[in-house]
Design a binder for these strands. Sequence first.
DNA 1: TATATTGAGTTGCATTTTGGAACCTGTCAA
DNA 2: TTGACAGGTTCCAAAATGCAACTCAATATA
Lengths: 173, 173
Amino acid sequence: MRWEETSNQVCSVARATSIFGDRWTLIILRQLFLGMRKFSDIQQALGITKHRLADRLGRLTDENIVFKYLYDERYKRYEYRLTEKGVDLYAVILTIGQWGDKWASDNDGPPVEYVHTECKQVAKPKLVCGCCGDDLTPHNLKVRMGPGLKKKHARDELSDQDIKLYSIIASDI
Amino acid sequence: MRWEETSNQVCSVARATSIFGDRWTLIILRQLFLGMRKFSDIQQALGITKHRLADRLGRLTDENIVFKYLYDERYKRYEYRLTEKGVDLYAVILTIGQWGDKWASDNDGPPVEYVHTECKQVAKPKLVCGCCGDDLTPHNLKVRMGPGLKKKHARDELSDQDIKLYSIIASDI
DNA sequence: TATATTGAGTTGCATTTTGGAACCTGTCAA
DNA sequence: TTGACAGGTTCCAAAATGCAACTCAATATA
Protein backbone atom coordinates (compact mmCIF):
# COMPACT_ATOMS: atom_id res chain seq x y z
CA MET A 1 0.00 0.00 0.00
CA ARG A 2 1.23 3.43 -0.90
CA TRP A 3 1.40 6.20 1.63
CA GLU A 4 -1.35 8.36 0.13
CA GLU A 5 -3.76 5.42 0.29
CA THR A 6 -3.32 5.20 4.04
CA SER A 7 -5.39 8.33 4.51
CA ASN A 8 -8.41 6.51 3.04
CA GLN A 9 -8.33 3.58 5.42
CA VAL A 10 -11.28 3.04 7.69
CA CYS A 11 -9.18 3.54 10.79
CA SER A 12 -8.63 6.70 12.76
CA VAL A 13 -5.14 5.69 13.79
CA ALA A 14 -4.15 5.08 10.18
CA ARG A 15 -5.67 8.37 9.06
CA ALA A 16 -3.98 10.26 11.84
CA THR A 17 -0.59 8.68 11.22
CA SER A 18 -0.95 9.43 7.52
CA ILE A 19 -0.69 13.06 8.64
CA PHE A 20 2.00 12.96 11.29
CA GLY A 21 3.46 9.46 11.09
CA ASP A 22 6.83 10.39 9.69
CA ARG A 23 10.23 11.16 11.03
CA TRP A 24 9.79 14.84 11.71
CA THR A 25 6.23 16.02 12.06
CA LEU A 26 5.70 15.08 15.69
CA ILE A 27 8.92 16.67 16.89
CA ILE A 28 8.20 19.78 14.86
CA LEU A 29 4.85 19.91 16.64
CA ARG A 30 6.51 19.38 20.00
CA GLN A 31 8.72 22.34 19.21
CA LEU A 32 5.66 24.45 18.42
CA PHE A 33 4.13 23.39 21.74
CA LEU A 34 7.30 24.53 23.50
CA GLY A 35 6.62 27.95 22.00
CA MET A 36 9.15 27.91 19.18
CA ARG A 37 7.45 29.44 16.20
CA LYS A 38 10.05 30.72 13.77
CA PHE A 39 11.25 28.72 10.83
CA SER A 40 14.95 29.21 11.47
CA ASP A 41 14.68 28.53 15.20
CA ILE A 42 12.96 25.22 14.58
CA GLN A 43 15.35 24.35 11.82
CA GLN A 44 18.43 24.88 13.97
CA ALA A 45 16.96 23.36 17.10
CA LEU A 46 16.01 20.15 15.37
CA GLY A 47 18.86 19.84 12.90
CA ILE A 48 16.34 19.30 10.13
CA THR A 49 17.11 20.58 6.66
CA LYS A 50 15.26 23.70 5.50
CA HIS A 51 14.03 21.66 2.61
CA ARG A 52 12.27 19.13 4.78
CA LEU A 53 11.04 21.67 7.30
CA ALA A 54 9.46 23.77 4.56
CA ASP A 55 7.78 20.68 3.22
CA ARG A 56 6.49 19.51 6.60
CA LEU A 57 5.22 22.93 7.66
CA GLY A 58 3.54 23.22 4.28
CA ARG A 59 1.71 19.95 4.82
CA LEU A 60 0.73 20.93 8.34
CA THR A 61 -0.60 24.20 6.96
CA ASP A 62 -2.54 22.36 4.25
CA GLU A 63 -3.98 20.11 6.93
CA ASN A 64 -5.00 23.17 8.93
CA ILE A 65 -2.94 22.05 11.91
CA VAL A 66 -0.78 25.16 11.85
CA PHE A 67 -1.24 28.55 10.21
CA LYS A 68 1.16 31.30 9.22
CA TYR A 69 0.92 34.45 11.28
CA LEU A 70 2.48 37.73 10.17
CA TYR A 71 4.35 38.86 13.24
CA ASP A 72 6.51 41.53 11.65
CA GLU A 73 4.82 43.88 9.20
CA ARG A 74 7.99 45.66 8.16
CA TYR A 75 10.10 42.62 7.40
CA LYS A 76 7.10 40.57 6.31
CA ARG A 77 8.09 37.78 8.64
CA TYR A 78 5.77 34.93 9.45
CA GLU A 79 5.67 32.51 12.31
CA TYR A 80 3.85 29.22 12.60
CA ARG A 81 1.12 28.80 15.16
CA LEU A 82 -1.11 25.92 16.12
CA THR A 83 -4.75 25.93 15.15
CA GLU A 84 -7.39 24.33 17.36
CA LYS A 85 -6.84 21.10 15.45
CA GLY A 86 -3.15 21.42 16.21
CA VAL A 87 -3.61 22.29 19.87
CA ASP A 88 -5.68 19.14 20.19
CA LEU A 89 -2.55 17.16 19.43
CA TYR A 90 -1.17 18.17 22.80
CA ALA A 91 -2.60 15.03 24.35
CA VAL A 92 -0.77 12.93 21.77
CA ILE A 93 2.56 14.67 22.38
CA LEU A 94 2.14 14.42 26.15
CA THR A 95 1.28 10.75 26.01
CA ILE A 96 4.20 9.94 23.76
CA GLY A 97 6.53 11.99 25.94
CA GLN A 98 5.41 10.13 28.99
CA TRP A 99 5.99 6.78 27.37
CA GLY A 100 9.44 8.02 26.34
CA ASP A 101 10.16 9.17 29.88
CA LYS A 102 9.35 5.72 31.16
CA TRP A 103 10.80 3.50 28.46
CA ALA A 104 13.32 5.41 26.40
CA SER A 105 15.14 7.66 28.84
CA ASP A 106 18.53 7.40 30.49
CA ASN A 107 19.20 7.47 34.22
CA ASP A 108 19.05 11.24 34.52
CA GLY A 109 15.26 11.31 34.63
CA PRO A 110 12.79 13.15 32.41
CA PRO A 111 14.30 16.01 30.41
CA VAL A 112 11.27 18.23 30.91
CA GLU A 113 8.48 18.36 33.43
CA TYR A 114 4.98 19.71 33.11
CA VAL A 115 3.66 21.63 36.05
CA HIS A 116 -0.10 21.65 36.44
CA THR A 117 -0.97 25.22 37.28
CA GLU A 118 -4.13 24.19 39.12
CA CYS A 119 -2.57 21.90 41.70
CA LYS A 120 1.03 23.19 41.39
CA GLN A 121 2.30 19.62 41.11
CA VAL A 122 4.36 18.01 38.40
CA ALA A 123 1.65 16.53 36.21
CA LYS A 124 1.76 12.80 35.64
CA PRO A 125 -0.74 12.65 32.81
CA LYS A 126 -2.97 9.61 32.83
CA LEU A 127 -5.80 8.44 30.64
CA VAL A 128 -9.19 8.00 32.22
CA CYS A 129 -12.70 7.19 31.06
CA GLY A 130 -14.60 10.36 30.21
CA CYS A 131 -17.73 8.89 31.73
CA CYS A 132 -16.71 7.44 35.07
CA GLY A 133 -13.21 8.84 35.52
CA ASP A 134 -11.60 5.46 36.16
CA ASP A 135 -8.23 4.59 34.67
CA LEU A 136 -8.23 3.10 31.19
CA THR A 137 -6.06 0.07 30.52
CA PRO A 138 -6.02 -2.57 27.80
CA HIS A 139 -7.63 -4.86 30.35
CA ASN A 140 -10.77 -2.90 31.05
CA LEU A 141 -11.46 -1.82 27.49
CA LYS A 142 -13.25 -3.87 24.90
CA VAL A 143 -13.07 -2.94 21.24
CA ARG A 144 -16.26 -3.12 19.20
CA MET A 145 -17.52 -1.91 15.87
CA GLY A 146 -18.43 1.75 15.81
CA PRO A 147 -20.96 3.52 13.59
CA GLY A 148 -18.34 4.31 10.92
CA LEU A 149 -17.60 0.67 10.36
CA LYS A 150 -21.19 -0.53 10.61
CA LYS A 151 -22.48 2.01 8.10
CA LYS A 152 -19.78 1.22 5.57
CA HIS A 153 -20.38 -2.47 6.05
CA ALA A 154 -24.11 -2.00 5.49
CA ARG A 155 -23.39 -0.03 2.33
CA ASP A 156 -20.94 -2.75 1.30
CA GLU A 157 -18.14 -0.23 1.04
CA LEU A 158 -15.48 -2.15 2.91
CA SER A 159 -12.49 -3.36 0.96
CA ASP A 160 -11.17 -6.86 1.48
CA GLN A 161 -8.44 -5.32 3.57
CA ASP A 162 -10.89 -3.40 5.72
CA ILE A 163 -12.88 -6.58 6.28
CA LYS A 164 -9.79 -8.50 7.26
CA LEU A 165 -8.70 -5.53 9.32
CA TYR A 166 -11.75 -5.59 11.49
CA SER A 167 -12.92 -9.18 11.27
CA ILE A 168 -10.81 -9.66 14.33
CA ILE A 169 -13.03 -7.29 16.27
CA ALA A 170 -15.97 -9.63 16.06
CA SER A 171 -13.92 -12.39 17.66
CA ASP A 172 -12.59 -12.48 21.19
CA ILE A 173 -9.45 -10.62 22.01
CA MET B 1 20.45 15.09 11.30
CA ARG B 2 20.27 11.43 10.50
CA TRP B 3 17.54 9.22 11.81
CA GLU B 4 19.73 7.12 14.13
CA GLU B 5 20.97 10.28 15.83
CA THR B 6 17.43 11.17 16.86
CA SER B 7 17.48 8.45 19.47
CA ASN B 8 20.26 10.29 21.29
CA GLN B 9 18.42 13.56 21.64
CA VAL B 10 17.63 14.83 25.09
CA CYS B 11 13.90 14.66 24.46
CA SER B 12 11.53 11.86 25.29
CA VAL B 13 9.29 12.63 22.34
CA ALA B 14 12.22 12.45 19.94
CA ARG B 15 13.48 9.23 21.48
CA ALA B 16 10.04 7.68 21.34
CA THR B 17 9.41 8.73 17.76
CA SER B 18 12.82 7.38 16.80
CA ILE B 19 11.28 4.00 17.64
CA PHE B 20 7.79 4.26 16.16
CA GLY B 21 7.83 7.47 14.13
CA ASP B 22 7.59 5.91 10.71
CA ARG B 23 4.87 4.97 8.30
CA TRP B 24 4.03 1.57 9.64
CA THR B 25 5.03 0.90 13.21
CA LEU B 26 2.05 2.53 14.91
CA ILE B 27 -0.52 0.81 12.75
CA ILE B 28 1.25 -2.51 13.19
CA LEU B 29 0.98 -1.93 16.93
CA ARG B 30 -2.68 -1.01 16.62
CA GLN B 31 -3.19 -4.29 14.86
CA LEU B 32 -1.49 -6.14 17.71
CA PHE B 33 -3.75 -4.34 20.18
CA LEU B 34 -6.76 -5.50 18.19
CA GLY B 35 -5.52 -9.02 18.82
CA MET B 36 -4.00 -9.80 15.46
CA ARG B 37 -0.77 -11.62 16.10
CA LYS B 38 0.21 -13.60 13.05
CA PHE B 39 2.63 -12.32 10.47
CA SER B 40 0.51 -13.14 7.46
CA ASP B 41 -2.70 -11.77 9.02
CA ILE B 42 -1.07 -8.45 9.75
CA GLN B 43 0.55 -8.37 6.36
CA GLN B 44 -2.70 -8.89 4.50
CA ALA B 45 -4.78 -6.68 6.75
CA LEU B 46 -2.45 -3.73 6.38
CA GLY B 47 -1.34 -4.20 2.80
CA ILE B 48 2.26 -3.86 3.93
CA THR B 49 4.94 -5.82 2.12
CA LYS B 50 6.40 -8.82 3.89
CA HIS B 51 9.76 -7.20 3.50
CA ARG B 52 8.77 -4.15 5.49
CA LEU B 53 6.71 -6.04 8.04
CA ALA B 54 9.59 -8.40 8.80
CA ASP B 55 11.85 -5.40 9.25
CA ARG B 56 9.44 -3.52 11.50
CA LEU B 57 8.62 -6.54 13.67
CA GLY B 58 12.34 -7.19 13.94
CA ARG B 59 12.95 -3.69 15.23
CA LEU B 60 10.06 -3.93 17.65
CA THR B 61 11.48 -7.21 18.91
CA ASP B 62 14.93 -5.65 19.28
CA GLU B 63 13.35 -2.80 21.23
CA ASN B 64 11.59 -5.32 23.44
CA ILE B 65 8.18 -3.93 22.53
CA VAL B 66 7.01 -7.25 21.12
CA PHE B 67 8.29 -10.79 21.50
CA LYS B 68 7.90 -13.94 19.47
CA TYR B 69 5.78 -16.62 21.02
CA LEU B 70 5.75 -20.22 19.78
CA TYR B 71 2.04 -20.96 19.47
CA ASP B 72 2.28 -24.11 17.39
CA GLU B 73 4.89 -26.65 18.43
CA ARG B 74 4.32 -29.03 15.54
CA TYR B 75 4.54 -26.47 12.75
CA LYS B 76 7.01 -24.30 14.63
CA ARG B 77 4.86 -21.24 14.12
CA TYR B 78 5.40 -18.03 16.02
CA GLU B 79 3.13 -15.11 16.76
CA TYR B 80 3.98 -11.64 17.95
CA ARG B 81 2.80 -10.44 21.33
CA LEU B 82 3.17 -7.19 23.18
CA THR B 83 5.52 -6.93 26.11
CA GLU B 84 4.78 -4.68 29.07
CA LYS B 85 6.67 -1.92 27.26
CA GLY B 86 4.44 -2.53 24.27
CA VAL B 87 1.22 -2.67 26.24
CA ASP B 88 2.14 0.72 27.68
CA LEU B 89 1.78 2.14 24.18
CA TYR B 90 -1.95 1.58 24.42
CA ALA B 91 -2.40 5.09 25.76
CA VAL B 92 -0.57 6.47 22.73
CA ILE B 93 -2.68 4.50 20.27
CA LEU B 94 -5.89 5.46 22.06
CA THR B 95 -4.99 9.12 22.12
CA ILE B 96 -4.04 9.17 18.45
CA GLY B 97 -7.21 7.28 17.56
CA GLN B 98 -9.29 9.79 19.42
CA TRP B 99 -7.66 12.69 17.65
CA GLY B 100 -8.28 10.89 14.38
CA ASP B 101 -11.94 10.30 15.29
CA LYS B 102 -12.36 14.00 15.87
CA TRP B 103 -10.25 15.52 13.13
CA ALA B 104 -9.61 12.98 10.41
CA SER B 105 -12.83 11.02 10.09
CA ASP B 106 -15.67 11.15 7.63
CA ASN B 107 -19.34 11.65 8.45
CA ASP B 108 -19.99 8.04 9.38
CA GLY B 109 -18.55 8.47 12.87
CA PRO B 110 -15.74 6.55 14.59
CA PRO B 111 -14.88 3.19 12.96
CA VAL B 112 -14.36 1.50 16.31
CA GLU B 113 -15.53 2.17 19.83
CA TYR B 114 -13.98 1.21 23.12
CA VAL B 115 -16.34 0.04 25.80
CA HIS B 116 -15.15 0.53 29.34
CA THR B 117 -15.96 -2.71 31.11
CA GLU B 118 -16.22 -0.98 34.49
CA CYS B 119 -18.94 1.52 33.62
CA LYS B 120 -20.27 -0.21 30.48
CA GLN B 121 -20.12 3.06 28.58
CA VAL B 122 -18.30 3.92 25.39
CA ALA B 123 -15.05 5.28 26.74
CA LYS B 124 -14.15 8.80 25.73
CA PRO B 125 -10.55 8.75 26.90
CA LYS B 126 -9.31 11.99 28.38
CA LEU B 127 -6.04 13.07 29.88
CA VAL B 128 -6.02 14.19 33.49
CA CYS B 129 -3.46 15.18 36.07
CA GLY B 130 -2.29 12.15 38.03
CA CYS B 131 -2.23 14.23 41.21
CA CYS B 132 -5.49 16.14 41.29
CA GLY B 133 -7.47 14.43 38.54
CA ASP B 134 -8.31 17.66 36.71
CA ASP B 135 -8.22 17.84 32.93
CA LEU B 136 -4.89 18.67 31.35
CA THR B 137 -4.80 21.25 28.57
CA PRO B 138 -2.03 23.33 27.04
CA HIS B 139 -3.42 26.22 29.06
CA ASN B 140 -3.02 24.80 32.53
CA LEU B 141 0.36 23.18 31.98
CA LYS B 142 3.69 24.91 32.22
CA VAL B 143 6.82 23.32 30.84
CA ARG B 144 9.96 23.48 32.92
CA MET B 145 13.37 21.85 33.01
CA GLY B 146 13.36 18.38 34.45
CA PRO B 147 16.18 16.53 36.22
CA GLY B 148 17.43 14.98 32.98
CA LEU B 149 18.08 18.34 31.43
CA LYS B 150 19.48 19.97 34.55
CA LYS B 151 21.95 17.18 35.21
CA LYS B 152 23.23 17.17 31.67
CA HIS B 153 23.49 20.95 31.71
CA ALA B 154 25.46 20.82 34.96
CA ARG B 155 27.80 18.23 33.45
CA ASP B 156 28.06 20.41 30.34
CA GLU B 157 26.86 17.55 28.19
CA LEU B 158 24.29 19.46 26.13
CA SER B 159 24.98 19.93 22.45
CA ASP B 160 24.41 23.31 20.83
CA GLN B 161 21.23 21.88 19.44
CA ASP B 162 20.04 20.67 22.81
CA ILE B 163 20.74 24.11 24.27
CA LYS B 164 18.80 25.80 21.51
CA LEU B 165 16.15 23.15 21.85
CA TYR B 166 15.43 23.97 25.42
CA SER B 167 16.54 27.58 25.75
CA ILE B 168 12.96 28.35 24.93
CA ILE B 169 11.84 26.65 28.12
CA ALA B 170 13.52 29.23 30.28
CA SER B 171 11.60 32.01 28.56
CA ASP B 172 7.89 32.63 28.69
CA ILE B 173 5.63 30.60 26.47
C1' DT C 1 7.09 -41.30 -3.37
C1' DA C 2 6.08 -37.00 -5.76
C1' DT C 3 3.56 -32.78 -5.54
C1' DA C 4 1.13 -29.07 -3.30
C1' DT C 5 0.25 -25.90 0.47
C1' DT C 6 0.97 -22.79 4.20
C1' DG C 7 3.45 -19.60 7.22
C1' DA C 8 7.21 -16.85 7.56
C1' DG C 9 10.32 -14.94 5.78
C1' DT C 10 14.77 -13.28 1.93
C1' DT C 11 16.67 -11.30 -2.23
C1' DG C 12 16.96 -8.15 -6.07
C1' DC C 13 15.67 -4.17 -8.20
C1' DA C 14 12.86 0.11 -9.31
C1' DT C 15 10.61 4.07 -7.15
C1' DT C 16 10.12 7.52 -3.38
C1' DT C 17 11.62 10.04 0.27
C1' DT C 18 15.40 12.18 2.78
C1' DG C 19 19.73 14.64 3.71
C1' DG C 20 23.27 18.03 2.46
C1' DA C 21 24.97 21.76 0.38
C1' DA C 22 24.62 25.59 -2.57
C1' DC C 23 21.85 29.06 -4.45
C1' DC C 24 18.01 32.70 -4.61
C1' DT C 25 15.05 36.67 -2.97
C1' DG C 26 13.33 40.53 -0.33
C1' DT C 27 14.28 43.78 3.30
C1' DC C 28 16.86 46.48 5.93
C1' DA C 29 21.40 48.62 8.23
C1' DA C 30 26.14 50.58 7.90
C1' DT D 1 27.52 49.01 -2.14
C1' DT D 2 28.11 45.56 0.61
C1' DG D 3 26.59 42.55 4.19
C1' DA D 4 23.40 40.15 7.03
C1' DC D 5 19.28 37.70 7.95
C1' DA D 6 14.91 35.13 7.42
C1' DG D 7 12.81 32.05 4.68
C1' DG D 8 12.88 29.60 1.30
C1' DT D 9 14.37 26.49 -3.68
C1' DT D 10 17.16 23.65 -6.57
C1' DC D 11 20.10 19.88 -7.47
C1' DC D 12 22.08 15.59 -6.53
C1' DA D 13 23.47 11.58 -3.68
C1' DA D 14 21.99 8.36 -0.08
C1' DA D 15 18.55 5.86 2.40
C1' DA D 16 13.98 3.91 2.91
C1' DT D 17 10.10 1.74 0.71
C1' DG D 18 7.21 -1.06 -2.65
C1' DC D 19 6.78 -5.00 -5.64
C1' DA D 20 7.60 -9.40 -7.39
C1' DA D 21 9.94 -13.57 -7.25
C1' DC D 22 12.38 -16.94 -4.61
C1' DT D 23 13.52 -19.85 -0.34
C1' DC D 24 12.74 -23.05 3.33
C1' DA D 25 10.75 -26.06 6.75
C1' DA D 26 6.85 -28.81 8.03
C1' DT D 27 3.13 -31.05 6.71
C1' DA D 28 -0.99 -32.79 3.56
C1' DT D 29 -2.65 -34.92 -0.32
C1' DA D 30 -2.62 -37.85 -4.55
